[in-house]
Design a protein around this nucleic acid. Structure first.
Lengths: 229, 229
DNA sequence: TCTTTAAATGTAATTTTAACACTTAATTAT
DNA sequence: ATAATTAAGTGTTAAAATTACATTTAAAGA
């Protein structure tokens, strides 16, 4: 009988977390070296099982915290993977989540203690199970999302140079963007605040720092602003 | 222990199917009247449980077939819903799928026999559980998808009038579209074949029929064509 | 032959995008 | 002190895409 709750099969439900970060080397992703079987010692996404009294969004937050110490990271659901043998131990369906975070803000030490490591997305090692697939799916989603609304907020430090924002976009979209066109397009969105402060570390002239104007950003989100580079 | 397969909770995993159709009244959705508890007699999406040796995509196809007789409908995964009490009987996580189908091609009789019924999306009754939420999510997705690539293929009959295609777009996007701009934009995509045949049923002058050029469409899909109305 | 009805068709103004290169400010080296 | 170096900063123009907008056409029915 199709709809008998009592006879229906139950399965293990897992979550896997894809965490993007950004630094001077470009776009990065956070991985852990598995300390348990199967595939012990291999690189993997942070994953774990859903609990009976837990919502998937919360499970993703909990699992990420367990493996990295990262707190209260807001993640978006990506896709649910259900290939029969995706996990060799037992049939497990996995719901992938992804998030964008600021590497600097999120204590590198803590991540060290937990054996997590940042990898450039262009140099990701072979991952366990179907995690490669999840990752490439997440990158596609991130690219799409970037074309729908600005992404800098989550990935950049509080104060950043225009050239960092440009580099972030170039990393995500994996292409060169004309500096002048980029700046005028970003400025036309009117969501950045130019500070009086300059960053003197990377050039003789120094470069102005910016912050996001969260209020204006939120106001515009409702209107679905789009960027097309 | 976080990663012990043996002690992890297992949950019921369901699929729910959101089927869109289109006819002279506009955009429609297929619902069934539940013939089992709970919520017997209420309108609902077609849903059922995942089997142990089954992939989610296949489960969605099977469940849809069981309730409607529809065969081999390709569905896309939408989102996974996991609120604790979303199903009052037992904790059930549900993966929603959606598809676009041609109402005429899919035998109304068969659907009758199975107690399924088409509803205009603007006149959908209250649905069980969180199915309203799934539906509104699916409509959002359909709108987005429509702005990314043409949708007519799946929803229209083999041969159709330009005015039907226009109406389809207006139904999905829920706004008026200028006829001349629509036609020139569609034509610029170069994926329609204008037939010599005319449909004489709706006007004295008659209107030319079109079909999709599947080859050109597939070729362009690779280039991610976008429409912006 | 006049009326009716939906179908079919084109242009001009505006906005957006894309391509493109030189100047500036400050430090460092001679 | 002056010349060289380096990243930062800045505008214009051409092309393409989008939007707004109104009349004519083909056939049937009165």
């Amino acid at each position: 009988m199709l709809n008998s709750y009592s006879t229906a099969d139950k399965v293990l439900l897992a979550v896997d977390c894809i965490i993007f970060g950004f630094d001077e080397d470009g776009l990065k992703i956070l991985l852990i070296k598995r300390d348990f079987e199967p595939e012990k010692g291999k690189w993997s996404l942070m994953g774990g099982f859903l609990k009976k009294e837990e919502v998937l969004d919360d499970a993703a937050i909990r699992v990420l915290n367990t493996y990295t110490g990262l707190q209260d990271i807001y993640m978006e659901q990506l896709y649910t993977y259900s290939e029969i043998d995706r996990d060799p131990v037992e049939r497990t369906v996995s719901v992938a989540y992804y998030a964008l975070i600021n590497i600097e803000n999120h204590n590198a030490e803590l991540i060290q203690n937990y054996h997590a490591k940042w990898f450039s997305v262009s140099e990701v090692p072979k991952l366990i199970f179907d995690h490669d697939n999840m990752l490439s799916h997440a990158i596609r989603r991130l690219r799409y999302r970037t074309s729908m609304r600005p992404v800098g907020f989550e990935l950049l430090p509080e104060k950043f140079k225009m050239s960092q924002l440009l580099k972030l976009y170039e990393s995500i979209l994996d292409k060169q963007i004309d500096k002048r066109n980029f700046i005028s397009k970003i400025n036309s969105l009117d969501i950045l605040i130019k500070l009086d402060e300059k960053d003197m570390t990377s050039s003789r002239k120094g470069s102005y720092l910016y912050t996001f104007d969260k209020e204006k950003y939120d106001a515009k989100l409702l209107n679905h602003f789009a960027l097309n580079f």
